[in-house]
Write a protein that binds this DNA or RNA. Structure first.
Length: 282
DNA sequence: ACGAGGTCCTGCGAGC
DNA sequence: TGCTCGCAGGACCTCG
């Protein structure tokens, strides 16, 4: 599910349901998802603790507890944070990784079908180290073109790989990287250090606008992702290139190209609208 | 320092 | 219908 718009949509919907609630009877069903914390330690931290704030950083959920510790959940491909009415139906329980009663007959569940997601428990110092390793939020007010451009400096990587690198910019994943590059008319394999100032400007605006539009649509639902109310997002109807290889380009009608040659990820683009251009051989 | 590729998992759709 | 295969929104690792 999870790029910035999906996680942000989910956080906006479930934050009111979780904030101020006290966690009771926490249960961990899978322990291989924990990073640098023991099951015992995590459960101990959750038990009887109150959720002070629910937020997002990059593509991750952040539950700040009243005691100051933070539970950081990286949902990766199929993880999701939901609130169910107790008792859970079998299908609601099936992929539950972590759950806790939150009062009012409700249960908070972190569910993850593929179990690629991770859970960490961070104290204040660890939180600062964690957030410092990640790039700026692309929809943040202080994320201007100068900041974006500086983040692209010093690499010869393909531009698509660079904008998906969480250390450079937070929250951009495969879907929105493809879409932003199409909007900016930049070939995904272009070497980052060959982008002109004009192209950097176009890409900066494209990233912001595609994420904003996707957020307005409550994210993109390809398969599993659901918003906090269980409804699918709707941005999949507005995708120009992602998942459309072989189909006509919405702008010029040419057949969209598909490849896995950049970082092994599905990449779709229009050869005519996003020409590779002339550049030095890598 | 970089790119390529493997790894962690399960489910689904395409194709035979 | 039933099977196998390839692929999937992410991020980590090792190797060369």
């Amino acid at each position: 599910m999870p790029e910035l718009p999906e996680v942000e949509s989910l956080v906006r919907e479930i934050a009111p349901k979780l904030t101020g609630r006290t966690l009771r009877r926490p249960r961990l069903h899978k322990t291989d998802v924990l990073r640098r914390v023991s099951p015992r330690r995590l459960l101990q931290a959750l038990r009887g603790n109150r959720i002070a704030e629910v937020s997002r950083r990059a593509k991750h959920f952040v539950l700040r507890l009243e005691t100051g510790e933070r539970v950081v959940v990286q949902p990766r491909m199929t993880g999701s944070l939901v609130v169910y009415r107790a008792p859970l139906r079998p299908d609601q329980r099936r992929y539950a990784v972590l759950q806790a009663s939150i009062g009012n007959g409700e249960t908070m569940v972190y569910r993850d079908i593929r179990r690629l997601g991770t859970i960490e428990l961070l104290d204040e110092a660890q939180w600062h180290a964690y957030t410092a390793r990640i790039g700026p939020e692309p929809l943040g007010e202080d994320f201007d073109l100068r900041c974006f451009s500086a983040r692209l400096d010093g690499t010869t990587q393909a531009i698509k790989k660079a904008i998906m690198d969480q250390r450079r910019i937070a929250g951009v994943g495969n879907i929105y990287a493809n879409e932003a590059l199409f909007r900016a008319r930049i070939h995904p394999a272009r070497r980052t250090d060959t982008l002109s100032a004009r192209e950097r400007g176009r890409l900066y605006r494209a990233i912001r606008s595609v994420l904003t539009a996707a957020l307005r649509a409550h994210g993109t639902t390809i398969r599993d992702y659901r918003t906090g109310t269980g409804a699918p997002g709707s941005y999949q109807h507005q995708l120009h290139v992602y998942g459309r290889a072989g189909s006509p380009c919405s702008h010029c009608g040419a057949r969209l190209s598909g490849t896995h040659s950049i970082d092994g990820r599905a990449t779709t683009f229009c050869r005519r609208c996003q020409p590779r251009g002339r550049q030095a051989r890598p």
